Computed example of a mutant assay.
Amino acid sequence: MNDHPVLARIRLNPHHRDVHRDLRDPMQMHRTVMRMAPDNLGDAPRHQVGLLYRLEETDTSSTLLVQGTHLDPALLPPNYGHADVKSLAPMFSALSKGIAVRYRIVLNPAKRERLGLDQKDKRGKIIPLSGADADQWWLRRAADAGLHLHVLTPTSLAPARPRNQQTPAMRHSLLRYDGTATVTDPEALTQAVLNGIGRGKPYGAGLLSLAPATAA
């Protein structure tokens, strides 16, 4: 098996019953994506293979991007979609301080509620962020990840709401950010790409995509 991270781009079959199910339920999508990983990975299989994914939808098609090691698209349901797989090694080799890049990421910006001193033994609720608060959250996380952002264009996405009867109140707000940036720390950026950024990774958040920025 290949230990190097790869990116699988899967054009989903719009007529497949499992595709319809997965597009309605992010937990089902996560289970389907995990089928690409090998068995017997222990208690944290997603973490073991560094699996991250993002769904990209247009008016006419749906494409699933899946990143990780040891991924085998042949383990997906038959006729689920057409997969192209490429190594991410050339991209990591090209990262250097000062280069300009384009980026795309879906995020679940959130903070933990602060509680009073009388509740110091309890943990506050996770509060989703929006608007300028979400933008500032992404600016800070990007800086920590070795990116100096020049442009950040947010797009609100439908929230991920698992259809599990045991989690009726769970709802994960999702924002997609597109823009341009300068690489400030290639090593930190490599780790951010490999590990993902923020919460909500089982719901399609955290996968950072990079490409060379073209001159205007």
Rank of each mutant, 00 (worst) to 15 (best):
D3L: 01
R9Y: 10
R11C: 07
L12M: 15
L12D: 12
L23E: 14
R24A: 15
D25Q: 00
P26L: 03
H30R: 04
H30A: 08
T32V: 13
M34A: 10
M34R: 13
N40R: 13
G42H: 09
A44L: 07
R46N: 11
H47Y: 05
V49F: 10
L55T: 02
E56T: 11
S61W: 12
S62T: 12
T63Q: 15
L64Q: 09
D72Q: 09
L75V: 12
L76R: 08
Y80E: 02
A83P: 15
K86G: 14
S87K: 08
A89M: 13
M91N: 01
S93E: 14
A94Y: 02
A94F: 03
L95N: 08
K97G: 03
I99L: 06
A100F: 01
A100W: 01
R104N: 11
I105R: 14
N108C: 08
P109V: 08
A110G: 08
E113L: 04
R114Y: 11
G116E: 05
D118L: 05
K120F: 08
K125H: 01
I126V: 12
P128D: 12
L129H: 07
S130C: 04
A132T: 12
A132C: 07
W138K: 12
W138F: 15
R141G: 00
A145E: 02
H148P: 01
H148K: 14
L149R: 13
H150F: 13
L152M: 15
S156E: 11
S156Q: 10
P162M: 10
M170F: 00
H172G: 00
L174Y: 02
L175I: 15
L175A: 03
R176A: 13
V183H: 01
A188E: 07
Q191P: 07
I197D: 08
R199S: 14
K201I: 03
K201P: 04
L207V: 05
L208N: 08
S209F: 10
A213W: 00
T214P: 00
